[in-house]
Design a protein around this nucleic acid. Structure first.
Lengths: 224, 224
DNA sequence: CGACGCGTTGATATGGCTCAAGAGTGGTGG
DNA sequence: CCACCACTCTTGAGCCATATCAACGCGTCG
């Protein structure tokens, strides 16, 4: 569910008229700051993000926090292991989710097409997490932030004139905890990219990608 | 496939006599240094480790390497995304693997029990990776090494007198690339734990856990 | 208007990296 | 069986990227 370039299967959100034998999809809404689930909760439901942005986190006893992923539309969150959730999950902006019962994923019963789609989501999740590993373990702070902005822009960027623009619904602290940095370093690194004219920053949480090629080069470590 | 405390379902390796309508499980063997697959290869098969130890890695163009996971017996490797493998995979010691065709995982056909087991493996994988994130992003070098030794001991440790002992088939460089450190730091951190009498080291690649409680405290950051 | 949360910037500290030199360790061939 | 070589591991010294500590600006909300 880490924001990936690969486009996920689109969600069929609209309820398919009122045919009695077609089950209406269950959805929930969640407001910013509210938790969808907490680490250790019994995991009986799996969620597909239809709109909004979720935040998945792990917290250590002493307060250190790791943001595991941001859940954007098309992402699936709440994969259980041993019947429990293994992260906290809350919303950054008002969000709507399609709900699936866990046993639909874990048993042979239920819609095979749904079944397959959830499995594909799990596999995409694993693949995306592998990228994240490389970023956390082996990249410098600029490379981390550049990778982050690049992936996010590919996924949810919007054209603005000749450039792409991306809105960041998360705080600098969230980004820091996602990248394994401090808020100060994230802030300084934003400044560094801004001074290099690679990005421009509007209203703190809106980033315009001025030089996508340069950004990609930094993200991949291809510059020197 | 990151070594996890959760015990996986045992593998039925023995071929179920010669009943003609029961499919004999396909297995492969792989020698140290040989690759099972490379990043980008078409992923038509999924493997369950029956014996041995595998190493899953990602490599950047400039040579920086991240060890994604070590594959121990009971682990499943080779989860595809978009039909391709997303890591390199080779063997640290001679290993045997049970092979499954990819379409057995991704279609409704095939043994439902197998289907379920592979899905469970994918979910375990996701859960284990989430632990790994916290380790890479937010832990100090001692905490990283302590976590690594603890998980490995839980998973494949063997009793030795009053203590648990664990054999490390991987080099210091492998451990470093798994934990996001350098070999020098890994070595120094081993020395540090050894001098604190928390572990003892035999023949470089055999570690004896002298103080499991202390090791766990360090791993979780519960000490100060 | 004041207080608080968030972001930025500056000064300093430090954990882990880099560079460099030895010390095991295992394999090979004479 | 030993000598040599290649490779891994350990240790040391110095440095650098990022963390830490601190101050301040800005916007928002009560």
């Amino acid at each position: 569910m880490y924001v990936t370039a690969a486009m996920p299967a689109p969600l069929a959100l609209k309820t398919p008229s009122a045919k009695p034998n077609i089950v209406r999809q269950r959805t929930v809404t969640i407001k910013p700051g509210k938790h969808l689930f907490l680490e250790g909760d019994p995991a009986d439901r799996i969620f597909e993000v239809a709109s909004g942005v979720l935040r998945l986190t792990r917290i250590m006893e002493d307060g250190r926090r790791q943001v595991i992923a941001f859940g954007y539309p098309g992402d699936t969150v709440g994969f259980p292991s041993d019947g429990r959730y293994h992260t906290d999950c809350d919303a950054l902006v008002p969000s709507t989710l399609v709900v699936h019962r866990r046993d639909q994923l874990e048993s042979a019963k239920g819609d095979p097409a749904l079944h397959l789609r959830l499995l594909q989501a799990a596999l995409r999740e694993i693949s995306g997490m592998q990228d994240h590993f490389m970023m956390l373990g082996r990249k410098s702070s600029v490379e981390k932030l550049a990778s982050f902005l690049r992936v996010l822009t590919d996924r949810v960027g919007e054209p603005l004139g000749d450039f792409d623009q991306v809105t960041l619904p998360m705080t600098r602290a969230d980004i820091a905890d996602f990248l394994g940095l401090t808020t100060e370093t994230v802030s300084r690194t934003f400044t560094q990219l801004r001074k290099a004219k690679i990005i421009a920053i509007d209203h703190v949480n809106t980033v315009i990608i001025l030089k996508p090629i340069a950004l990609r080069a930094i993200a991949e470590g291809d510059d020197d």
